[in-house]
Design a protein around this nucleic acid. Structure first.
Length: 509
DNA sequence: CACGGGTGCGCG
DNA sequence: AAAGCGCGCACCCGTG
């Protein structure tokens, strides 16, 4: 059964919600997709209506989870399944203005039904919709955050929080920088001014980026690099960040499913996907609880091997560390070199270490390398490429210069792998959610293990300590499920590494 | 004063 | 000059 919700429903944080909300229309469809009944629901009754109907395990069809689900969660109502019209419209390349969800839903199902790779597209639609639910649930649950630990860490690195102006450490480093430049005054926050000052001191530099400065031997460089790192910490994840984004011991970022063209998630507010390792010790489980952190090992190369059905490359990853497998196979001298070579193949490197290793990779793994080379050629010719489950790259603009064509090729080369890895991660997430819900009935999220963070190929579950072992097993099982769903691959094709600790930094060394 | 491009750097 | 992929955010600084 499907139930299509239509109406103007605003987010719970919108102060005008009550006055402006119009009644909601719920259209109940039978298994053939034909409308069987229409009900009108007052916004105030929506959560109760959904909770009641959820017992029949319908698939809820709505504009997008971000429109509807926050208010349901705020009322304590979770749902199992949805069809996210806005996200699916994007996958199907359909323009949709939000009008008539019933008609749009019917049109989407027809389109999916006629697709040549119907089973894959159905999986993508289900995984994308499940991801949309999870994104809202992640925001609702929040990432457990110790303001006390964060403040301790900032004070240790920057000095006590200043009432006004810059922290003491930055003032001291600024003075050291100017002293090293023979007293010349300089604004280290201004690349222009900094470049001028460095040149005036006789340094031949054309950029003030850290990687360019590191190779220079001059007394101004160490305090300058330290200033940069600390100034960034203060600006991006300092006390102001803490006040803006952490409430009641939780960081509640907004996740945006498919916010990236490849299908990866993006985030809005607080830089959730850029949390520096520096502050991760502030991510701290509640008393009696722990964090179970898991990440998929060498996900993108493994995805490429599975997509290409490259038996040699799959074998290189069979012992748990694909880069070590490349070394054992004689492709690279050491693990670091193996990693650089592999990433170069995925990104389209032509120069440097990784560029030089490409011929050896191509010889050892012709099917895998052939797949990304073909994607690159398609992109260079202005063609669109598709992920394993069928998400298409955006159309190319008008034909440009050869340089632009090559850039397009690097994009499409990476698109097929990054996009398919995102699909695997969605299936993993969906599997984790389903298994956690089945294994731990109870008040969500405060009483049961729950997803608390997601970072492309990494998840964090906040759980009572007693359940950590079961949660870890669920994360492994769900990774195996994801591999089977996408590729029919055996367990262990996508190994994950797991850490359990009170804080994020300790759980993920 | 707001806006937006450029720069730099955090993450995968 | 261009440069291995995808992002978000803070800051500077020129423009209107």
């Amino acid at each position: 059964m499907h139930i299509v919700l239509d109406g103007v429903l605003r987010r719970p944080d919108d102060a005008l919600a009550i006055e402006e909300d119009a009644p909601v229309t719920a259209t109940i469809l039978d298994d053939a997709g034909r409308p069987r009944a229409v009900e009108t629901v007052e916004p105030g009754e929506l959560a109760a209506f959904v909770a009641q109907r959820e017992r029949e395990r319908p698939r809820w069809v709505w504009s997008t989870a971000a429109d509807w689900y926050p208010v349901l969660l705020a009322s304590g109502v979770r749902i199992e399944r949805s069809h996210d019209l806005r996200l699916v419209a994007a996958i199907l390349d359909r323009e949709w203005d939000g009008a008539d969800p019933v008609a749009e839903h019917r049109a989407q199902l027809e389109r999916i039904d006629r697709a040549p790779e119907r089973r894959r597209l159905e999986l993508l639609v289900a995984a994308e919709s499940a991801g949309a639910l999870i994104a809202v649930e992640l925001r609702h649950a929040g990432l457990p955050w110790s303001a006390e630990e964060h403040d301790r860490l900032l004070t240790e690195l920057l000095g006590p929080r200043p009432a006004t102006g810059r922290p003491a450490a930055l003032e001291r480093l600024h003075r050291e920088i100017e002293a090293a430049l023979d007293g010349a005054s300089v604004n280290p926050d201004s690349p222009q001014d900094l470049l001028r000052a460095l040149r005036a001191a006789g340094l031949r530099v054309d950029s003030t980026r850290a990687c360019a400065l590191k190779s220079i031997d001059h007394p101004v460089i160490p305090p300058l690099l330290e200033y940069r790192a600390l100034a960034r910490l203060a600006a991006a994840h300092g006390w102001a960040w803490l006040e803006a984004w952490v409430r009641d011991g939780r960081f509640h970022p907004e996740f945006v499913p498919a916010g990236v063209v490849t299908g990866r998630w993006a985030s809005v507010g607080g830089g959730a996907l850029q949390l520096p390792h520096q502050v991760r010790s502030a991510v701290r489980a509640d008393p009696g609880w722990v964090l179970v952190v898991a990440d998929a090992a060498q996900l993108e190369p493994r995805i490429l091997a599975a997509m290409a059905g490259d038996a040699a490359m799959l074998a290189a990853g069979a012992d748990g560390d694909l880069y070590a497998g490349l070394v054992a196979a004689g492709i690279a001298a050491d693990r670091r070199q193996a990693k650089v070579a592999m990433l170069g193949a995925l990104y389209g490197a032509t120069t440097g270490d990784s560029g030089r290793l490409m011929p050896r990779l191509a010889k050892a793994y012709p099917r895998a390398i052939g797949l990304v080379e073909a994607a690159a050629r398609d992109g260079e010719r202005g063609r669109r490429v598709r992920t394993w489950l069928g998400r298409a790259s955006p159309p190319a603009g008008a034909a440009g210069s050869p340089q632009q064509a090559r850039a397009r090729g690097r994009f499409t080369r990476n698109f097929v792998v990054q996009g398919t890895a995102a699909e695997w991660a969605l299936c993993w997430l969906g599997g984790i959610r389903g298994r956690l819900t089945a294994a731990f009935p109870g008040r969500w999220p405060s009483a049961v293990p729950h997803l608390a963070f997601f970072l492309h190929d990494e998840v964090l579950v906040h759980t009572p300590e007693a359940h950590a072992e079961r949660v870890a097993a669920i994360l492994v099982d769900a990774a195996d499920d994801a591999g089977r769903l996408l590729f029919g691959s055996p367990p262990g094709t996508f190994p994950i590494s797991i850490g359990v600790a009170r804080d994020y930094a300790a759980a993920k060394p």
